[in-house]
Simulated scan of single mutants.
Amino acid sequence: MAASSLSLDTLRDAELVSSGRRVFQIESTELDRVGNRIGAEFAAACRLVLASRGRVVTTGMGKSGHVARKIAATLASTGTPSFYVHPGEAGHGDLGMITEDDVVLALSYSGESDEVLMLLPVFKRQGNLLISMTGKPESSLAKAADVHLDVNVDHEACPLALAPTSSTTASLAMGDALAVALLDARGFTADDFARSHPAGSLGRRLLLHITDVMHGGDDLPTVREDASLSQALMEMSRKRLGMTSVVDVDGRLVGLFTDGDLRRALDTDLDVRTAGIAEVMTRNPRTIGADQLAVEAARLLEKHHINGLIVVDADNRPVGALNIHDLLRAKVV
């Protein structure tokens, strides 16, 4: 381990905090500089990708390679098919993954990475359009590209000016800018995003509908409005949802009875053995449609401080029921 100019005994928290804040200040300044340079070249890069019938193939060595991987992942998840190819592996067979319709996005801050430059004749011969991202507009890679994106920074955050810091942050931000501009141009929606992230929490929130989590059919607790409180309690016990819908003779919802309603009834002089459900139910309860997203049910429960909802059709007839536990199990909340 390299020797430190400061011993751990004398190193103060304030010095560590100051060092960390300095990095944010430097990188923030450099991001502003790079962002202000976005112009016609950036638009040209977007148009190359939008006009392409293929994918965006990113490549780069070292830290630029890590950034290129992240850019490919961001593009792919926001509507622009993309993947990363390691430039060293490309020369040993992985070039076969790249078709003539693909656009290549090559990253090298110096613009002189041998492994990347070695691939340029192949790309040109195959007819691939090339977008370069470098910090040196006069570099070999920048000059060979159809479009160059300039991510030059004045200062790295590393006090030794050796470790790529501001430059990699600027490259990441440029990749994000490219992905978001393409997303906007394609009219990419939250539903589109969810379809490519079905296993994630966002995917569940955007793809799960009420019908996916509700209890319907024989599992739907329902009693008529002329039923007794005892009958309603038996229905609640059988269906185990802590509530039951109450319907009229035509099957339309007129009320809801919950565990909370029972507790409130027990606090009164009401004789629960003889009482009718109509005396203790909540009239005109909150409901939700079966075609709505499960996350909308979560919002209703939170907004109105309730634990369950009856799902109704267009004629206000109950078709399902759900409670907060159903949403928790589905990982919607």
Results as ranks from 00 to 15, higher is better:
271 D>F: 05
304 H>D: 13
279 E>C: 12
308 G>W: 02
308 G>C: 09
279 E>F: 09
283 R>E: 08
304 H>M: 07
308 G>N: 10
290 A>Y: 04
302 E>G: 12
291 D>P: 01
295 V>Y: 12
291 D>T: 09
297 A>R: 00
292 Q>H: 12
306 I>G: 10
288 I>S: 05
289 G>T: 11
315 D>T: 09
301 L>N: 05
313 D>K: 02
315 D>G: 06
295 V>A: 09
303 K>S: 06
306 I>S: 13
270 L>V: 15
292 Q>Y: 05
304 H>A: 04
311 V>S: 07
301 L>I: 01
277 I>L: 09
289 G>R: 12
280 V>Q: 11
304 H>V: 08
278 A>G: 09
305 H>S: 12
296 E>P: 00
275 A>L: 07
274 T>G: 03
285 P>G: 10
298 A>S: 10
304 H>K: 08
273 R>E: 14
315 D>M: 07
301 L>D: 03
280 V>A: 14
290 A>G: 11
274 T>P: 00
278 A>V: 14
272 V>P: 02
311 V>N: 06
278 A>P: 04
270 L>C: 15
310 I>K: 06
275 A>T: 14
302 E>P: 00
290 A>E: 10
302 E>S: 12
313 D>F: 01
281 M>N: 11
299 R>I: 03
315 D>V: 03
295 V>H: 06
301 L>K: 05
286 R>D: 02
298 A>H: 01
288 I>A: 07
270 L>Y: 14
289 G>S: 15
301 L>S: 08
300 L>P: 02
312 V>D: 02
297 A>I: 00
302 E>Y: 11
299 R>K: 13
296 E>C: 04
298 A>Q: 06
288 I>W: 00
297 A>G: 02
284 N>H: 15
310 I>E: 08
285 P>S: 10
272 V>G: 10
287 T>C: 07
312 V>R: 05
295 V>M: 11
